[in-house]
C-alpha cells in the first residue's frame, strides 16, 4: 500500500512541477494529498537551489541561457574595455547599464563593429523608476548574427539629458520623440525634438509617475476625478 501511495505521490508531484495542479488536487485521500503537497514544496525548493530554469529541462535552453549570460557579459566587457568608465552598474545577466555621457560613441561602435553589428534598434522604452530617476532602455538586435542586448541609461528627472542616437539608427528619430513626449527626457543632438502623439502645446510629461493633468486645455476642462465612471 505504501509503495502505491509513494508512486501516486511522486507521479502527482512530477505533474505538478510541470504546472498541472489537478494531479495533486484529485487525490482523494486527504493524508496522501497533504503528503503530496509537502513533497511538492520540497521539490520546488530543491530546484530553486539548483540555479536553473524551472520549466525546460532540455539541454538547448540551458545552453541558450548560458550563452545569453555569457553574451551579455561579453558585450559588457567589450564596452568597458573600449570606453572605460561607461558602465554604470556591475555586470548583469540581462542588461547593460551605461552612463549617458559616451552613449553616442558607444552606439556608433555597437553598430559598426563586425563581431557585434547591432544594426537594428528594436525598441526604446522610457520608464520612471520613482524618486526622481528616469531611465531609457534600448533593445538592440543584430540581423546578421541574430543576437540581442538591452542597454539601460539612468538619468535624474531634474536634468534628463541623453545623447540622441537618431543618426545611428534612423528609427530612433521617432522613438526618441515619443520618449520625450511621454517622459520629458531631453535627447541632445536630436534634429527635430518635438512632441509626437500629444499636441504641441500640451503641458507635462504624462507617463511619469508624478504626473498631474493640467486644469484646462484651450478652454476644455480636463477631468481629474472620475466618479461614477465605473
Amino acid at each position: 500500500m505504501n509503495e502505491d501511495k509513494e508512486k501516486i505521490i511522486s507521479e502527482a508531484v512530477e505533474k505538478a512541477l510541470q504546472g498541472e495542479m489537478d494531479a495533486i488536487n484529485n487525490i482523494e485521500d486527504r493524508v496522501t494529498r497533504s503528503k503530496a503537497k509537502a513533497a511538492l514544496v520540497k521539490a520546488k525548493r530543491a530546484k530553486a537551489v539548483n540555479d536553473e530554469d524551472s520549466i525546460k529541462e532540455d539541454d538547448t535552453s540551458e545552453s541558450k541561457v548560458e550563452e545569453k549570460i555569457n553574451f551579455n557579459q561579453t558585450v559588457c566587457q567589450k564596452i568597458s574595455e573600449k570606453f572605460p568608465e561607461s558602465i554604470d552598474a556591475e555586470q548583469n545577466d540581462d542588461w547593460i547599464q551605461v552612463k549617458p555621457e559616451n552613449w553616442l560613441k558607444i552606439a556608433k561602435w555597437l553598430k559598426s563593429d563586425e563581431k557585434l553589428y547591432f544594426d537594428s534598434l528594436q525598441c526604446n522604452t522610457g520608464i520612471d523608476l520613482g524618486e526622481g530617476v528616469l531611465e531609457s532602455r534600448y533593445n538592440l538586435h543584430s540581423m546578421k548574427h541574430l543576437h540581442k542586448v538591452e542597454i539601460r541609461i539612468k538619468i535624474s528627472a531634474e536634468k534628463p539629458d541623453i545623447p540622441s542616437v537618431e543618426q545611428v539608427w534612423r528609427v530612433a528619430d521617432w522613438f526618441e520623440r515619443e520618449t520625450y513626449d511621454m517622459f520629458g527626457i531631453n535627447f541632445i543632438g536630436h534634429r527635430d525634438l518635438r512632441r509626437i502623439l500629444l499636441p504641441d502645446d500640451w503641458e507635462g510629461w504624462p507617463l511619469r509617475k508624478d504626473y498631474e493633468e493640467q486644469e484646462t486645455y484651450h478652454g476644455i476642462v480636463v477631468p481629474k476625478v472620475k466618479e461614477g465612471w465605473e
Binding site: D119, S120, L121, Q122, M143, W169, R170, V171, F175
Partner: peptide, 19 residues
Amino acid sequence: VAISYGVTGPNLRGSGVKW
C-alpha cells in the same frame, strides 16, 4: 533604409530581406 528605419514585416520582406 528599411532596416535602419526599423521597418519590419511585409514592408521589409518586399525589399528583399528574408526576415
